[in-house]
Amino acid sequence: MALLEIINLHAQVEDKPILKGLSLTVNPGEVHAIMGPNGAGKSTLSNLITGRPGYEQTEGTVRFKGQDLSAMAPEERARAGIFLCFQYPVEIPGVGFTTFLRTALNARRKARGESEIDAAAFLTRLKAATKALGIPDAMLKRPLNVGFSGGEKKRAEVLQMAMLEPDLMILDEMDSGLDIDALRIAAEGVNALRSPTRSVLCITHYQRLLDYIEPDFVHVLADGRIVRSGGKELARELEEKGYADFVSQAA
């Protein structure tokens, strides 16, 4: 069964149609890159899958593990195994990073009928994950994302993924605001999480992220539709030629 199945998806934001008949199937273990010019609907797609308020699905279906997502609250989608790695992680003063992480993990465990993780086991897992990502302990004591650098924010997102173990990792413009070193560290973190059952939807404007997170499939999104699909070589082609052809083709 496909992990994520999108059929003829139409969606709008504030009555403005953004997605206009998008179809996409992601099977377990696959890495799909969605590339496209600004305004093509890339972020709308990730927001729609994760259930951000303000994004309205007007037509089509989105299924995750066979379940229709449209009636599910954002937290239900997350507990089902969807994780959005935010382009701009939100700073939340007053909420400690560690407290937040334990609350999120327990919410997920509870939804699966598991007991709350005990404090020692949680800390052991957290320590291992932070070490792998080169995250300093001091960062864990800070309020969520507050005062984190761009690179630290992305690493913190990857740390959350490592702890929450989603089945679908959606990376929204993961490379924005990152220098090459920070990008490499974050991408290595993602790669370490890849598995035959875990899929990646990598949304990006630039090809450079795909040097680090190698896709199985590349799709070009233009004017709310996927206008071309191919292998990883398509990303190279786009890097050389740009999106101009696709923009005119879609229009």
């Binding site: 308020p53 954002p74 937290e75 994780f83 959005l84 007053g94 909420v95 937040f100 609350t103 997920r108």
Partner: peptide
Amino acid sequence: FYLQSRGIDEETARALLVEAFLED
């Protein structure tokens, strides 16, 4: 939305944010 997108239900997320607001 950020908190909900991590699996935290809306009530709990709101409570966390209220507490965070009063925290300082």
